[in-house]
Nucleic acid binder design. Sequence first.
DNA 1: AATCTATTGACAATCATTTAACAAAGATGT
DNA 2: ACATCTTTGTTAAATGATTGTCAATAGATT
Lengths: 208, 208
Amino acid sequence: MDDKSISQAVVARLPRYYRYLGDLKDKGVERISSQDLSRMMKVTASQIRQDFNNFGGFGQQGYGYNVAYLYDEIARILGLNEKHNLIVIGAGNLGQALANYMNFERRGFIVRGIFDKNRQLHGKELRGIVIQPVEQMEQFIRENDVDIAVLTIPKEGAVKTAELLVRCGIKAIWNFAHVDLNVPDSIVVENVHLSDSLMKLSYGIANR
Amino acid sequence: MDDKSISQAVVARLPRYYRYLGDLKDKGVERISSQDLSRMMKVTASQIRQDFNNFGGFGQQGYGYNVAYLYDEIARILGLNEKHNLIVIGAGNLGQALANYMNFERRGFIVRGIFDKNRQLHGKELRGIVIQPVEQMEQFIRENDVDIAVLTIPKEGAVKTAELLVRCGIKAIWNFAHVDLNVPDSIVVENVHLSDSLMKLSYGIANR
DNA sequence: AATCTATTGACAATCATTTAACAAAGATGT
DNA sequence: ACATCTTTGTTAAATGATTGTCAATAGATT
């Protein structure tokens, strides 16, 4: 059903569709055609139909797509019906910001623990979650069914930490460290390289 | 010279090249062949050569690429030789984290101001920079030659704020709000949709 | 100095993605 | 109930990106 041959480009567009469909749903819109959606999102209607069809026929000729149904289907495709336990590794500015950000929890991503090697942070609480020493991380992952690790530590330790996480049986790493991790293909890695993003922006300014 | 017809895919790869070349340079490596780099980066040598050739012949047959030279060239292409003044709009967790993050300054991105509408934050200092009311933003942009705005506010206000920024003559927006901005094509927008990224990760777990 | 080796830059071939076109299916209006 | 309109799903065409190939060139070796 969810064929493995879905291209990355398509998957990368799904969250945006999901966002627009959520907005439509909130506005009480019941149905939407690929053409109307294409105007809103500034992509071609053809691409929208092609994208949705990768996962089966969600629409109906002469009618369009049912907003609520399509919204739920995309959630299901994205795996948002599942709950995930996650830990944040690195309680610096970014780590704390992410741990504090409640909205992820609404989508089923629940922060279970925060770890840092800096002793001065140990015991500090964020939303009731205590910052723990990294030494306790391994045991914590195994005991708390942790799927996802959010890696917000400096690049120096990131590769080794990722390897440790793999040994602990983590499924996915959300990597904010400025380095490429070296993990088996079976581990899902989603990189957020903020400095890369800023450089792209810089390129944009230089080459307008 | 820097042809406008460089594809987004190529530009998106440049920061990664830059990162690897920086590491090589730090290690004292003088030259590198596309083949060696291809093994390190796990991309094809052909792609590396093709990518670099978009910007002119940086290499030499039988020798490879000079690391220091190529590093500088990529920096120039990315516009990293230019300094940019930026402001952070929204002093929540993420805004404060970004404003505190020193590493961007090393690349010439200098935080000049932080703005928030929450009165309780006004006057608070981050690295010597005072959080100001958004009402003062417009004047501040004009008086301080601000190029880039980092938008870390909730999505509700983001579109309007972006439009205001355009009227103030901002060149680029680094957008962390979960919404698509509506600005002229001449304005550079680099989106960092963290929730989209997390959904992609979720898809990865669901469809391994 | 001549030969060999490494490696680029350019081009061609392949592969992937996007867009266009249209028949088929269903909704809508009379 | 019929005709008309809308809009999908699908196939084909066009465009774009990646990879493979190889002649040309420069460094390295003898």
